[in-house]
């Protein structure tokens, strides 16, 4: 769909060949290419601006201007900065010293929360945990059933109290149930909601204050566009997030939302959803994500050459 950034930068610098040394103006031209590539990948404009400014600072330094391969050098700088920005992540969930550890998944409608709750359940069981899934979405038609079916398929217990009761009470009930039945993790599935829906955001705050989750994770669709920053900022501001899960990375989206969300919340991206099946949950890799956002599968070989 897009010509890769690496290729574009190569061409930009090829045009300059024969002119001798690369100038600051040439770097500015290259930065325009970087900007366009990031925007095409749906990285939020605000994040792009800050990022490009930082990259530019490094790129007008000796390492690029003096290089025989300035194109590769710029790619290298961009790539390294991107990885650094998304880095520092770990897929580890903070476990409570006093079980059960409570994990709450939140996010916009259709992001993939319910599916991810079941994936996480499977993931944790493989690590020797005893997770309990809790059906706290009382709004979406058949949301409880959806979680029950998924739990059944995986032979994971699902706690539900129907839909005629408040999600706060369901969450409390789930934790009590976990304590009584020796489950060491509780995964709360919550209803999808808009970050601007005050009533429903209040509901999440009530769940938070009554069961004190150890991890509140925002589930974000990798196809999200410029609005990712508003959504992440709002959820983070109101709830205080501990991490992010990026879903639907098995698609062909560049996934610039990853960068936006990380940049505005500072929260690590802990997992990546790679499909609809329960085992399609992976640890998040900042380096792979950086290559993907830039559309450069060949980035590593290029950098090695630089």
């Amino acid at each position: 769909m897009f010509e890769g950034l690496a290729e574009k930068l190569q061409n930009t610098f090829k045009k300059l060949r024969g002119k001798g040394k690369v100038s600051e103006a040439d770097v500015a031209e290259a930065m325009r290419e970087v900007r366009m590539a990031l925007l095409a990948a749906d990285v939020s404009l605000k994040v792009v601006k800050d990022f490009v400014a930082r990259v530019k600072e490094r790129a007008v330094g000796q390492e690029v201007l003096e290089s025989l391969t300035p194109g590769q050098q710029v790619v290298k700088v961009v790539y390294e900065e991107l990885v650094a920005l998304m880095g520092g992540t770990s897929s580890k969930l903070t476990l409570s010293p006093k079980p059960p550890t409570v994990v709450m998944l939140v996010g916009l409608q259709g992001a993939g929360k319910t599916t991810t709750v079941s994936k996480l359940g499977l993931f944790l069981r493989k690590q020797g945990r005893r997770p309990l899934l809790a059906a706290c979405d009382v709004y979406r038609p058949a949301a409880v059933k959806q979680l029950q079916v998924l739990g059944n398929q995986l032979d994971l217990p699902v706690f539900s109290m129907g839909t005629g009761i408040s999600p706060v009470d369901i969450a409390k009930g789930a934790v009590e149930h976990a304590v009584a039945h020796g489950r060491d993790m509780v995964l709360l599935d919550t209803a999808g909601r808009l970050h601007i829906n005050e009533e429903l955001m209040e509901e999440l705050k009530s769940i938070k204050s009554s069961v004190r989750p150890h991890e509140i994770l925002l589930v974000v669709d990798a196809m999200t566009g410029q609005d990712a920053v508003n959504v992440a900022e709002s959820f983070h501001g109101q709830l205080g997030l501990d991490g992010v899960i990026l879903t639907k990375l098995d698609g062909d989206a560049r996934g610039g939302a990853a960068l936006s969300v990380k940049a505005v919340t500072g929260c690590p991206i802990k997992f990546a959803g790679m499909g609809e099946k329960p085992d399609a949950l992976e640890q998040f890799h900042p380096d792979r994500m950086a290559s993907r956002i830039l559309g450069m599968g060949d980035v590593l070989t290029l950098i090695e050459k630089a």
């Binding site: 749906d42 916009l108 999200t224 566009g225 062909d252």
Partner: peptide, 11 residues
């Protein structure tokens, strides 16, 4: 199409 989707909607 979800209005929240970015450029991937074109694809």
């Amino acid at each position: 199409l979800d209005a929240t989707t970015g450029q991937n909607a074109v694809s």
